[in-house]
Write a protein that binds this DNA or RNA. Structure first.
Lengths: 248, 248
DNA sequence: CGGAATTTTGCATAAGTTTGCAAGAAATAG
DNA sequence: CTATTTCTTGCAAACTTATGCAAAATTCCG
């Protein structure tokens, strides 16, 4: 039996049952569990399923989507959020973009902090609804299922009426020449307006986002005032410092 | 059975019942209570529920008070939501007001339903973000911490641009003479606009809300087309029927 | 086609996880 | 206060995974 036949069978079975067990597959395909394990690994590598102990499960939209919610680099992000926190003071109005870095920041906002938070991110909204002293504003509009953020004209119009002290940008790529870029045109538009609506713009970017670029431009790199990253000592950050951007 | 299946089952059950008991889960899943305990711990760790003695309760976006309310009359509400569900069909645009009855309805929307949902309720938003086929629109604005809904001018402006097939109204009091009334002026305003933005208005009201009134008027009782209640056979509902309102 | 190089497969062993159980501590209810 | 239930901790058994290795299969190349 060809390897491709096995992989095909595994995906078919996964689709039918919403899960596969290594022991079962080994039996069905008449190969050792080691081989099945290696097959699953290959499929996981190419993103066609999620490997779990004892077998594999499909991607969302499926019952197990929570598996994907686990945050990678969590410690890095907490560390970055702590730095971001030092920029925030009572009485300010801050804009929080979507993304896991900004969500981590939202989770860490101390309970007695008195600020106005404007966000377009559903997870951040859920998080801050429970916060006792934050004045919370959500930008309305159609909700993007992938990014879990609001977008479109309504979001942009609401943001245009705002002038915030700080804007924290989450998921996006930073490059000294290409500037700030994003994967989605609509989201890039929203980010652009967000940045125009704040006096100071702070980018939260793990080091793997630095020096990379994506299709849609948000703004020039000089639109960013502060970059917060997990490894501020990296020499690759020098170009940003030379442009007058503060790196924390 | 894969661990992930157990975790998934627990989350599903939690969503359906708003609580899970260790003894029950141990039985349902055919594993020891220790294992269930460890599973709950893992889910609590990743912030997907809150562990309490003997079981677990959901996390955001239902703060405790909200939860208390929804557990009360829960079966009545599921029953009512089932009736409401029968009014909804593919291709429609529906408005969901805040409140526990409408949240229950949102939870029960079948996974293959293709409708556009417009809501101002944070819990409903959180609920439906995960829905695979619903086009979701949230009305922006300042979030009221008590009601967990968006309110204010932005919300109203967005609603005014909409014309939906159905509007499901949650928490409010109904009275044959006083009409539809609410506890909060701002929320009453939003409800008024919501109703104007739909061809057909459906009130979800448990029987204890019938025949009562609160300070702020939303509209005359004739603004309601259908009343869905837990005890449609009560003679006290006759006045509404006489006014041409359908009672389910 | 032959034979070397590469890949795939299965096995053995060791390491790591998960699970259920037991005994005692802690919390809760009556 | 006592009885009951739930929680914690430690642990052993069962199971899963990682690794190195050798046999088998496949590919490559002249």
């Amino acid at each position: 039996m060809l390897k491709e036949e096995r992989l095909d069978y595994i995906l078919k079975k996964l689709q039918a049952d919403n899960k596969v067990l290594q022991t079962e597959l080994s039996n069905d395909l008449q190969v050792s569990e080691d081989t099945v394990r290696r097959d699953l690994e290959a499929l996981a590598q190419s993103g066609q399923l999620i490997k779990v102990r004892g077998g594999a499960i499909p991607h969302s939209p499926n019952p197990y989507s929570f598996k994907e919610r686990i945050v990678y680099h969590e410690n890095d992000k907490k560390h970055m959020a702590a730095k971001a926190l030092s920029l925030i003071h009572d009485g300010q109005t801050i804009i929080l973009d979507g993304g896991t870095s900004t969500l981590t920041l939202a989770k860490m906002l101390p309970p007695n902090l008195k600020v106005t938070v404007i966000t377009n991110s559903v997870p951040i909204l859920s998080q801050l609804v429970e916060h006792p002293s934050i004045d919370l504003i959500f930008t309305g509009g159609r909700i993007g299922k992938d990014s879990q953020t609001a977008g479109g004209m309504d979001t942009i119009k609401m943001l245009q009426r705002v002038k915030a002290d700080l804007c924290f940008l989450g998921i996006c790529s930073l490059h000294p020449v290409a500037g700030v870029t994003g994967l989605d045109l609509g989201e890039a538009d929203v980010k652009t307006v967000m940045m125009e609506s704040a006096y100071k713009n702070v980018a939260l970017a793990t080091s793997d986002k630095m020096g990379t670029a994506e299709p849609y431009k948000v703004c020039d790199i000089t639109g960013i005032d502060i970059i917060i990253t997990d490894k501020p000592e990296l020499p690759s950050l020098q170009p940003y410092i030379d442009l007058g951007i503060q790196v924390l």
